[in-house]
Every structure is written in C-alpha cells, then in structure tokens.
C-alpha cells in the first residue's frame, strides 16, 4: 500500500539542507575551492559526453570508410599542392625569424618565440545555448591548462576555460563573456575585440571615432594580457552600420565548422637577448642559447 501523504516532518528540513548545501557550493566556487570535486563530477559525466559524441564519430568513420578512391586521390593531390606551397613559404620563414631575433637584439628587446601545439578533437556535444563553449577530448592528462590559447588553421578560436582529466571546455572568442586584446596588423593600433554572442562577429567597442581603421583590416593578437601569443590572426574588420559601433569584425577562424583545434603552449621564457655589438668585437652576432 502506497502512502497517500508522504509523512514528512523532515521534507522541509531536507529542502533547507539541499538549498544551503547548494549555496555553500556556489560560494566555494567563487573562490575556486572545488577543483578536485569538479574533477570527480567531470569523470562521472565523461561517459555521457562520449555516448552523445559516438553517433557523430561513427558517422564520420563511416563516411571515411566509404569515400571513393577517386575522391581520396583528388583530396590527396590537393593536400600535396598545399603542402608544397606551405613548405615554400616556410623556407623564408626560418630566415625571417632569425633576422627578427637579431634585429630585436639590436633594439634591446626580448622576443617570445616558438610555440608547441597539440591537436584536440571537438566532442559533438552542446553545452548551453547563448554561450559559445565547446568541449575537446584532451584534458589535464595531456597538460592542457586553463587559459591556454586554442587556434585552428586560420586563426584564433578561443581559450581553455576549464580542464578535467580527459576533456576541456574551450570558450570561443565570440562568447559574450570573452574579450581578446588585438592590434591592427597594418598600423599596430591596439584595441580589444569582444564577443557578441553571434558566431560570425566580434565587436570593437573601445575605438575612438577617428581611429585609423578600415574595412578589411586584419586584426592579430597583440600579446597584451599574456594569454594569447602575439601575432596570430583573429578577425577581419567589417563595416557595421549601427549607430554606436562603426566597425565590427568577423573571426577568421572557422568557429562553427571545426572538427579539430590546435592547443598552443607558449614557451614561458623569452629568447635571451642578443649581446650588443659592442660586446662582440669581431662584429659577429651570436644567438645565446
């Protein structure tokens, strides 16, 4: 026989306990005291994420298996051409990089150089609407850390927000809570690009009305703030006819079409300065290791 009324002198008390416990958790999270606890929870929900991801993964595998020979050959050919082009560009890059280090040595400034990257796959899960957060399949086990920049082949995608042992949440640059320090590649004008909540646009709210900026300008990371390494493309300036903002920007990374991201490690210590020419009497410049 089921009871008609739940005899519950304690139900109200139970609610009180639950509410207080939740509020305590909320308060603790403000000071980020709950990292181990969150890791346990994240490990618990990892199978769910994998479960949701698996049909998409299977479909991709399926498409791979059944793609035609001719198709593969065409793609292969295209990739080979692209690789050759890129290699040709890289030939000059090494020389330019070296020259840059040397020139900066002359100017007495240090220069950060050399980043490591790792490829992480996106999990096909939605987190919440209105926030642009994606989940990738590499976590702290792979050395991923919060605040780590994420790129794709075209430009900056975002930064790592939260890390769990086997996965990480990456906040995209278009999230309304995200802002990224940028500079105009053409003239070095520095500003901040904020997310708008739309996947194809950033806003540039801190530009003065007479700022030297044109439609089509490339915005690159300025390296201010220390999260993003300097010089990666972020967005292209587009005209916006709104009353308040004359300019917006469209991200160059393919934010909603990526299947993989590159997670970047900044080398923490800058390349040591080149000694001044005066200290090199024979007029040759040594790059110290």
């Amino acid at each position: 026989m089921k009871p008609l009324f739940i005899k519950s002198p304690s139900a109200g008390f139970g609610l009180l306990v639950c509410v207080l416990a939740s509020l305590a958790l909320l308060a603790c999270e403000q000071f980020s005291l709950l990292k181990p606890f969150r890791e346990i929870l994240a490990t618990a929900i990892y199978p769910v994420q994998q479960l949701v991801n698996s049909p998409t993964q299977a479909a991709n595998k399926f498409a791979e298996v059944f793609s035609s020979h001719a198709n593969l050959l065409a793609v292969n050919e295209e990739l080979r051409k692209e690789q050759m082009l890129l290699k040709a560009k890289l030939l000059k890059f090494a020389a330019l990089e070296h020259e840059n280090v040397r020139l900066r040595g002359l100017l007495d400034t240090s220069f950060k150089l050399g980043e490591q990257v790792m490829i992480a796959e996106l999990l096909a899960v939605n987190v919440v609407p209105y926030e642009h957060i994606v989940v990738v399949n590499k976590g702290s086990r792979f050395g991923v850390y919060p605040g780590q920049p994420a790129m794709d082949a075209n430009g900056v995608v975002g930064q790592v927000l939260r890390v769990t042992p086997y996965s990480a949440e990456v906040i995209l640059i278009t999230d309304p809570n995200h802002a990224i320090p940028v500079q105009v590649n053409r003239n070095g004008l520095r500003t901040i690009a904020q997310g708008t909540g739309q996947i194809d646009s950033l806003s540039l709210p801190y530009l003065s009305s007479n700022a030297d900026i044109q439609v089509g300008d490339l915005l690159v990371t300025s390296g201010m703030g220390g999260v993003f390494p300097q010089g990666y493309p972020v967005a292209k300036v587009i005209a916006i006819t709104s009353q308040f903002a004359k300019f917006g920007a469209a991200p160059v990374a393919k934010l909603d079409r990526n299947r993989e991201l590159l997670l970047v490690w900044n080398r923490p210590d800058p390349i040591p300065r080149v000694p001044k020419p005066s200290s090199c009497p024979d007029n040759t410049v040594h790059v110290e290791k």
Binding site: S22, L25, L26, Q30, Q49, V127, V128, R162, E169
Partner: peptide, 9 residues
C-alpha cells in the same frame, strides 16, 4: 558539471 555551470546552480 555537464553544462559547465557553477556547481550548485
């Protein structure tokens, strides 16, 4: 944890 909220919401 699943939706990346503050724990407790």
């Amino acid at each position: 944890a699943l939706t990346g909220r503050t724990l407790g919401q």
